[in-house]
Amino acid sequence: MARSLINVPKSAAAGSVIEIKTLISHPMETGFRPGADGRLVPRNIITEFVCRFENEEIFRAELFPASSANPYLTFTTVATRSGTFTFTWSGDNGFSQTERAAIAVT
């Protein structure tokens, strides 16, 4: 399992814009680099990131071989009600990781 860091405010006023930051540790091998034996190192990247709030998709990103290792994504959304964000990273070789973070809206 990869290590992820998520920064979501614990609380926010209703209608306010909040910033969400995510980072996941992942080697992100492009598949174009030769290894020590001269053969290409197999591709191993995160290809998709999805953020949902109470099962409603609010942000999606497709990642490609040019993405850096340990992809860092930041985006904004409007705080409408209290609930839980679900963050899912998917990639090559069946990689999938899901994390959750809650917010209280007043």
Results as ranks from 00 to 15, higher is better:
86 T>A: 13
40 L>K: 14
47 T>G: 11
49 F>H: 14
83 G>M: 05
54 E>V: 10
8 V>N: 14
32 F>T: 10
29 E>N: 07
11 S>R: 14
17 V>C: 02
30 T>M: 05
75 F>S: 11
54 E>I: 04
63 L>W: 00
47 T>I: 03
45 I>A: 07
91 G>R: 01
86 T>K: 15
40 L>Q: 11
39 R>G: 15
26 H>W: 03
63 L>K: 07
69 A>I: 02
30 T>G: 04
91 G>Y: 00
15 G>K: 04
80 T>S: 15
68 S>A: 10
86 T>G: 14
10 K>L: 06
56 E>F: 00
83 G>K: 12
38 G>L: 04
25 S>E: 14
52 R>W: 02
31 G>C: 05
91 G>S: 04
78 V>Y: 03
57 E>N: 05
55 N>M: 03
58 I>F: 03
8 V>H: 12
74 T>K: 08
74 T>R: 08
39 R>A: 15
91 G>C: 00
64 F>M: 14
39 R>V: 09
86 T>F: 01
41 V>R: 15
89 W>Q: 07
12 A>D: 10
90 S>T: 12
67 S>C: 03
21 K>P: 01
48 E>D: 14
30 T>K: 08
40 L>C: 07
42 P>W: 01
37 D>Q: 13
50 V>R: 11
47 T>E: 06
19 E>P: 00
77 T>P: 07
13 A>F: 01
85 F>A: 13
